[in-house]
Design a protein around this nucleic acid. Sequence first.
DNA 1: TTCCAATTGAGAACAGAAGTCAAATCAACC
DNA 2: GGTTGATTTGACTTCTGTTCTCAATTGGAA
Lengths: 155, 155
Amino acid sequence: MSPHDVQEAVRQTYQAYLTRHGLKSTVQREIIIKRFVKSRGHLSADELYAALREEHPSIGLATIYRTLKILTEAGIAREQRFNDGFTRYEFNGPDDRHHDHLVCTACGRVEEFENREIERLQEEVANIHGFAINDHKLELYGLCPDCARSGRNVG
Amino acid sequence: MSPHDVQEAVRQTYQAYLTRHGLKSTVQREIIIKRFVKSRGHLSADELYAALREEHPSIGLATIYRTLKILTEAGIAREQRFNDGFTRYEFNGPDDRHHDHLVCTACGRVEEFENREIERLQEEVANIHGFAINDHKLELYGLCPDCARSGRNVG
DNA sequence: TTCCAATTGAGAACAGAAGTCAAATCAACC
DNA sequence: GGTTGATTTGACTTCTGTTCTCAATTGGAA
Ligand SMILES: [Mn+2]
Ligand SMILES: [Mn+2]
Ligand SMILES: [Zn+2]
Ligand SMILES: [Zn+2]
């Protein structure tokens, strides 16, 4: 899927969500979404706020929070809570697959990985315990190669 | 290891930690630890506070937090952050093995499991990415058998 | 006992996030 | 285009779990 197609699919999903919930499209939301989709990191609301601060200083932090909530509910964003006290949001594109995370406890770097075998074993565990799983969280915390090499250990 | 031996080992570890850090033993800490070790759940500070409230109404919440921090640092307790907004603490006995959690999103029930194969695959992933892992978090969220059967879906 | 650092409980402070509200904006209708 | 009413906005306040502050108390070495 080309970047343009992704952009278009997001717009489609977003508009459908607005209509379905009787919400309005606004310039602030457009700006926030465009930047969020473009950045493709694991952003906190405050980081996104800071990223928009220069070009759009009038957009309030509350609007960022509200828009991220809409995006999450529309399936365009995904919430992640690593252990730094912030809720982080990542773009969830139309053909993005589920993945889990490696988190560097020194510099905050986040790497993604996908492991079908682990996922399968998780299902097995859930079955054994009779749980009907609808979400899971797997995070590996430690030092990234750079931080391990340089002996860093705090952020 | 008998309950008495566990009790004794905890006391040992606790005392050693106090000495090593120039801390004092207090009646409040003794009471909190005894109750914490006995309960063996995944308790929030507030739940522990409530549990002690009746018998020891003068013990403050701040002291609970402070004691749980000491226990965590001494390796007697382990912090867990599930997705309910509370930090939870579980007793980490001298012969307790590492385990992960199944969490019911309806009733809050927490089940533990251990899966060496998943752990091994995690190490493999970390190696591929060059990360030096020192902690990880694996939680499966869904409905426990009871809640699934009764159609419950909120806590 | 004396003495002083460690500890306590109460309340204030903190931080991320969510709520409040009057003013501004969107979009449906004419 | 203009009118209208519901939605949204930004600034601010509030909320909540946790930590900090501080004067009074306590623990334990001497
Ligand atoms: Mn990710
Ligand atoms: Mn556990
Ligand atoms: Zn790093
Ligand atoms: Zn349940």
